[in-house]
Amino acid sequence: MGFFDFIGKVVFIALILFGILYFTNGLDFLSGKISLDPEAIRASPYVNKIVYDDIEIRQFTASVTKGCPSGDKECQLNKVFRHVVENYNYYSDPVGKELIQSPYETREVEGGDCEDFSILMNSMLESIGIKTYLVLTDDHAYSLACGIDPGKLRDYVEESIIEVYATDSEFSRDNDIVYDDGDIYIRETYNLDFVVDSFTTYYFGGDGSEITDPFLSEKLDYSITFSSPVDMYVVSGRGEYEKLAKSETFSAYSECTELGALSVDDECTIGTYGGIAISNDNLERVHVQMKLDVYMKYNPQEFLKDITITSYSINGASCVVLDGTSGKFGYPGLNPAELKGKKVAVDPKTKEIIYLE
């Protein structure tokens, strides 16, 4: 092989490599934003799909984060994350092909894989001024969102997780759940129709034991009618009722006591498994119709005790992990488990490579 033939082949191979880099990375390669680092080259097809300044993405993100206080990045981040995990399905790539979707395509398909979810979240967050990174491992992709206060974010995360368990979980399907302003109640409903004999008492309720975890309190919500005036009490349990029945001194919740009542429509919150006592001092029997809802307030810490907000410090900023494949019980900061290989964070704009851990 002659010298010029050798030089010609070298130039030919260089042109082929140049063409590959140019067509996969375009102007980023010419401007020097893409390095020849193998990790940077590997990441380029993904980061090149991230959109930064598209008005359609910005408008869509604004609608998703509506209701957040102005400039509240933690609220915005949580809402973007909840939108992705609650509205998109996981779809694997076609057999034998790496299909990388744009954020528009992921929205249209209403699903994708880990790279597609990360591209969508990064695009949405970047459109409202939240700095992001794309993280690649040997078998997974996820995002980082930077400039986030993990402590403040946790407040939003806890609120979201409580709501998910209260409204869309095995826990909520197995119980009659009432979710009220961040509080979870397990409800039991009773419709009673009975008679109280003259000069006797009646009791419906618990044994008076203290309420313990996972419950915090008991709320009795009742609507009762009586055919003749009676005295009605909410007592801490059967023990106090038995004192009443024996005409002994007993304790009752004074704010929930109704004397000479023909009807009662009220609620009473107590700290024991208590109930309702009725005393009939009339000469005739009294017909009683009672609708009673018993609400046991559930301790939400049962759902929150394992939450850990994972973040990394990058260039002085706290960057929180976002795994779009973690599902509706996932949350911003949930660290993906059992990842293979190095965790390589890529700045989508500068193509800077950062090795995590």
Rank of each mutant, 00 (worst) to 15 (best):
S227A: 12
T201W: 04
G237N: 01
A252F: 11
L244K: 01
V230H: 00
F250L: 00
S209G: 11
T200K: 10
Y202H: 11
K219N: 04
T249M: 13
E255I: 15
S263N: 14
K243N: 03
P214Y: 00
S227G: 12
G260F: 05
I270E: 00
S198T: 13
P229V: 01
Y241E: 02
E248N: 12
D265W: 12
V230N: 04
L244I: 04
L220T: 05
D231K: 07
V234R: 02
S251Y: 15
Y203H: 13
T249C: 14
G237L: 03
D266H: 14
S198L: 02
Y253D: 03
F215L: 00
V234M: 03
I211F: 01
S251V: 14
F215Y: 01
G206Q: 03
C268L: 03
E255A: 09
G271Q: 07
T212N: 07
T212F: 14
C268G: 06
D213S: 15
F204Q: 00
S254R: 04
S217I: 06
S254V: 15
F215Q: 05
V264I: 07
D231Q: 07
S247P: 09
S217A: 12
T249V: 15
A245R: 02
P214W: 13
S209Q: 13
P214S: 04
E267W: 12
Y202W: 10
Y202M: 13
S236I: 07
E267L: 13
G239M: 12
F199W: 08
G206N: 03
G208C: 07
K243L: 02
I224P: 06
E248K: 02
G271S: 14
M232P: 07
G206P: 08
I211Y: 00
G260C: 04
S228W: 12
A252K: 12
D221A: 15
E240S: 03
D207S: 10
D213E: 15
D221E: 08
S223A: 04
E210A: 15
S247D: 13
L216P: 10
I224A: 11
D265P: 09
Y233E: 03
D221V: 13
